[in-house]
Amino acid sequence: MCLAIPGKIKSIESQYDGLVRIAKVSFGGIIKEASLEMVPHAKVEDYVLVHVGVAISVVDEDEARKTFQYLKEMGEVEEELNISEMLPDDI
């Protein structure tokens, strides 16, 4: 199943002579890159929903935290971020 996972933008860089904006996004401490092409107004410290490496919307912090927690409880976060081997057994 593919889901959009909420994360917090930690940094943004421009690539290809400024044509593409890529963010480093933190998902509960796991950092992944995401394209900001669908959310050109997104900035550092914003929370975004990321689906297959693309930020698809900006969300408020409370909504992001609730969604991340629900997905974590369902076990979906590990699968979507491919991090299950990095997590302790008790999660």
Rank of each mutant, 00 (worst) to 15 (best):
Y16R: 14
V50D: 05
E79Q: 12
Y47A: 05
I12C: 06
D62R: 11
D62S: 13
D89R: 15
V77T: 11
G53P: 07
Q69S: 10
P6Y: 09
I91Y: 11
D90R: 15
C2S: 15
L19Q: 06
E13V: 12
M86V: 10
I30E: 14
L49S: 04
N82P: 05
D90T: 08
V39G: 01
I83A: 02
E80Q: 14
I5K: 13
A64W: 01
M74N: 13
K24F: 15
A34M: 08
I91M: 14
L19T: 11
I9F: 05
V39Q: 05
E79A: 10
G7C: 00
E37Q: 02
I56K: 06
K10S: 14
I91W: 13
V58K: 07
I83L: 03
K72H: 10
E73A: 06
V25G: 09
P40S: 02
G7E: 09
A55M: 01
K32P: 07
E78G: 15
G18F: 04
I31S: 04
S57N: 07
E61Y: 02
H51E: 12
D89V: 06
A42S: 02
M38H: 12
V50C: 06
V59D: 06
S26W: 03
A4N: 13
I9C: 08
I91F: 03
A4I: 06
V39D: 00
L19C: 11
E63Q: 13
E37K: 00
P40N: 01
L81I: 05
M74Y: 12
G28E: 08
M1T: 13
V39W: 02
S57M: 04
Q69H: 12
A42C: 00
F68R: 04
